[in-house]
């Protein structure tokens, strides 16, 4: 673990002044400290931003919900308005990591989470994301956990966040603040595809700070479901996950939102599948067709071909359970708090 300077930011402006390529902001620290210990991240300076006043959750006049960057994953998952209006987000948050990590991790930190690709995490391996131009050991290595969608010749690392999959389905806007002031970025545009620059992961300048995340107004009335599939029942990254929201008119889908996790290089909105669902009856055949469309462009490697089928299964089941929730007229029961995955899928 390399030496670094440590300081505490007293204001957002003060923090942004510190920001440069050599500086890391620390909030929860769950990604940063992990990767610094592995010598994967090597900041010369760490700025503690926990004292910044970014911990509020507020309802905006237009119905959107603004979440401070430092709201922890736990607090966000249990926030009454999130549980009521965005149960999908609550479920996704609680499906991620462990209690301890959720207590530490923040909203902005989760947006900035980095891949779990073992070759990225091992400085003895070739990785274009960690060391541009060094190659990609994952492509022909053990790539069970790797991406089917959004990959490139240079990188097939999966974006690991659960929260972000829900956000992709819900829609959100990030507020970024830097020396030249505040700007807003749509969530969908924040994370980048790897292309030939996998080391550039997001649209955040080194001297900028995420200050808030604003959720789009809730899709209502709708049913939603977040389903995460993995080897064990908890505390594991997704092999495939699906976030689904459906608005129904009787048996007919009027609006669908679908996003995927565990299978893509960024939080993956399945827009074409959504379009194909609109106007269709909320039945298995529609869900299966949507799943086929969502995975149509999948590019599996040696060990992750099974995730094409697994992701389809996640989609079909998440859509089914979202439709059931919609038909019940509520998905309050699906907030997933304290549920093992055995219960997760039971609508």
């Amino acid at each position: 673990m390399r030496a670094f300077d440590f300081s505490r930011a007293e204001s957002v402006g003060n923090a942004a002044q510190h920001g440069n390529a050599e500086t890391a902001f620390v909030a929860g620290g769950t990604t940063l400290l992990d990767l610094v210990k592995l010598d994967v991240m090597r900041p010369a300076a760490v700025v503690d931003i926990n004292a910044l006043p970014l911990k509020a959750v507020e309802r905006l006049a237009d119905g959107r919900l603004k979440i401070g960057a430092l709201v922890t994953n736990t607090d966000l998952a249990h926030h009454p308005e999130v549980k009521r209006d965005y149960p999908l987000l609550s479920q996704a948050l609680l499906a991620g990591a462990s209690t301890q990590l959720r207590n530490m991790a923040t909203t902005a930190g989760n947006l900035m989470q980095r891949t779990r690709c073992p070759y990225f995490r091992d400085v003895g391996s070739a990785c274009n994301k960690r060391q541009p131009g060094s190659g990609c050991d994952a492509r022909d290595g053990i790539n069970r956990m790797h991406a089917l969608l959004g990959g490139s010749a240079d990188c097939i690392a999966v974006h690991p966040s659960d929260m972000c999959v829900a956000l992709a389905a819900i829609g959100a806007t990030l507020t970024l603040e830097g020396p030249s002031g505040e700007r807003e970025v749509a969530f969908a545009d924040f994370h980048r595809l790897p292309g030939d620059t996998p080391h550039l992961e997001h649209d955040l300048a080194a001297d900028e700070l995420i200050t808030a995340l604003t959720l789009d107004a809730p899709l209502a009335p709708a049913g939603s479901h977040y389903l995460k599939l993995r080897d064990r029942a908890s505390y594991e990254f997704a092999l495939a996950s699906a976030a689904a929201q459906l608005k129904l008119d009787g048996e007919r889908i009027t609006e669908a939102r679908l996003a995927l996790g565990g299978v893509a290089t960024k939080p993956w909105r399945a827009s074409e599948a959504e379009a194909a669902l609109a106007g269709q009856p909320a039945v298995l055949e529609s869900f299966e067709r949507a799943a086929e469309i969502a995975l149509r462009d999948a590019q599996p490697r040696a060990h992750n071909a099974f995730k094409v089928d697994l992701a389809k299964q996640a989609i079909v089941r998440a859509l089914r359970d979202a439709s059931r929730a919609a038909q019940r007229g509520t998905d309050q029961d699906d907030t997933g708090q304290g549920r093992t995955d055995t219960q997760e899928s039971q609508a």
Partner: peptide, 25 residues
């Protein structure tokens, strides 16, 4: 234990990627 077939390096030598049962299992 996942050994990379190309070079016999152990790829999941950590507690997150080597999967053991947790409470929920």
């Amino acid at each position: 234990l996942d050994y990379d077939p190309r070079d016999a390096r152990l790829i999941n030598a950590n507690v997150a990627d080597y999967i053991v049962p947790v409470h929920a299992d």
